[in-house]
Simulated assay, not measured.
Amino acid sequence: MAGSATDQVFQFGGFTLDLGKGTLGRAEQPAFLRPKAYALLTHLARHIGRVVPKSELMDAVWPGVFVTEDSLTQLIREIRKVLGEETIRTVSKRGYMLIPEIEPVPEPGAQPIVAVLRFRNDSADPADEAIVDGIAEDIINGLARFDTLTVLARNSSFSFASYSPSEWPVVRSRIGADYLIEGSVRRHADSIVCAVNLVDAASASQLWGDRHQADYAGLSAIQQEIVEKIVGRLVVRVNNAGLQRASRQPVASLAAHELVLRGVALLRDPAQSELKEAAAFFEAAIVRDPAYGLAYTYLALSHVLNSEFGPTSDAVLTKARDLADRGIALSPDQATAHRIQSLVRLNMREHEAAEHHLRIALELNRATRTVSSRWGIC
């Protein structure tokens, strides 16, 4: 949906509806609807991307007048004749939904692509739709701060609803999402309960789920509390899911990013018994892409982790520092690069430099309140 300053302009199916001007058209060619059909389209546009119940539509178009569903069906047919059959979706036994303009499918890339679907409103009050959408939008904004993920915009993801699992496999082909975040929100008199699930779009299987409850202390505070709890968990879970997906593929077919993920998976092993194998993955990633900053960063970390099993020589620490510097030079906006450089400098007893890089890392990644792990592996 594209909105003006007063949210009076909507785009769908190549058409633009300007409620302020009272116009409907495509490519500067006007389209015409009868008054009742235009009123129905207007109400659907004001709730674009949401399933609008039939009773609500009839009340909006024929206020105070009893009509049958046949009258509503006839207007829907008229609108579809002008706009196209795919513009308005029929949701069985629920109502109709005007589909927003869908963004082009992103080009395939190494980063996981995440879509936050429109959350389900489990409250009895339809007025809570704004709260539900606001929480989902805040999750989108929170995830978008992490440059290890590609997060689709609301215009794309909100055209699919959390209460339609049968549509999940379609999301991957329609908007290119690898992972889906779906959920529901229920508001009580003094609290809000938010349930969130992470779904693998390819298999439509749930990878993780959690439930959060916040006491009522003002709507803004509740949204912030819920989103802060959810976003930190989702980033780790999405990255873990990417690691699992990469580990199922033959090594020979992995791109530089996937090689790094394989190496990080070994670093995450509590035993850390395969540090040399992890370093080999990072070195292979550098061969594949000499400009890939994170490969140098994690290679530096693999050298520092050897200190767990004995003293690390000054020569090894110097090499790790140089690798970390190279990683920062190639990826200056990566919080991970500065976090690992901070660890290297700490092992070198360069405390001021360690604090300097840690502060930069925290500044680059404000969306998380805590460091993800002891060694900064994320």
Score class of each variant (00 low, 15 high):
311 P>A: 11
367 A>L: 06
225 E>Q: 13
322 D>I: 04
57 L>Y: 04
312 T>Q: 11
204 A>R: 03
182 E>I: 12
304 V>L: 02
287 V>K: 07
95 G>H: 12
133 D>S: 11
140 I>V: 15
129 E>V: 06
319 K>P: 06
214 A>N: 05
306 N>M: 06
269 D>R: 07
104 P>M: 05
244 Q>K: 14
69 E>T: 12
377 I>R: 05
55 S>K: 14
180 L>A: 03
99 I>D: 01
309 F>P: 00
57 L>I: 09
318 T>L: 10
66 F>P: 11
297 T>N: 14
125 D>W: 02
171 V>N: 04
311 P>I: 13
53 P>Q: 07
240 N>Q: 15
206 Q>C: 10
133 D>W: 06
129 E>I: 12
263 G>Y: 02
66 F>M: 14
304 V>E: 08
282 F>N: 00
212 H>P: 00
142 G>A: 03
75 L>W: 02
42 T>W: 07
146 F>W: 09
339 R>Q: 14
155 N>F: 11
90 T>C: 05
271 A>L: 14
163 Y>M: 09
225 E>A: 12
51 V>W: 08
339 R>K: 03
342 S>R: 01
33 L>K: 05
187 R>W: 02
317 L>V: 11
30 P>M: 05
264 V>G: 02
136 A>L: 06
131 I>S: 08
338 H>L: 02
24 L>F: 10
216 Y>T: 00
281 F>S: 06
283 E>V: 12
109 G>I: 01
235 V>S: 01
182 E>W: 12
2 A>V: 13
365 N>P: 06
204 A>V: 06
50 R>D: 13
363 E>A: 07
228 E>P: 00
334 Q>C: 09
157 S>G: 08
250 P>N: 00
173 S>E: 14
365 N>C: 05
79 I>P: 01
180 L>F: 03
362 L>E: 15
190 D>E: 14
21 K>C: 02
213 Q>K: 10
331 S>H: 10
287 V>A: 13
298 Y>K: 02
114 V>Q: 03
126 P>H: 09
129 E>M: 07
360 I>A: 05
263 G>N: 10
236 V>R: 11
35 P>M: 05
264 V>E: 03
16 T>K: 15
29 Q>Y: 06
7 D>V: 10
352 E>W: 01
163 Y>F: 15
11 Q>L: 11
57 L>N: 01
329 A>E: 13
342 S>E: 00
327 G>E: 03
264 V>Q: 15
306 N>Q: 14
60 A>I: 03
371 V>M: 08
287 V>T: 13
316 V>I: 12
141 N>E: 07
182 E>C: 15
324 A>L: 09
29 Q>A: 10
21 K>Q: 15
309 F>V: 08
255 A>S: 13
369 R>K: 12
212 H>Y: 15
319 K>A: 13
303 H>E: 11
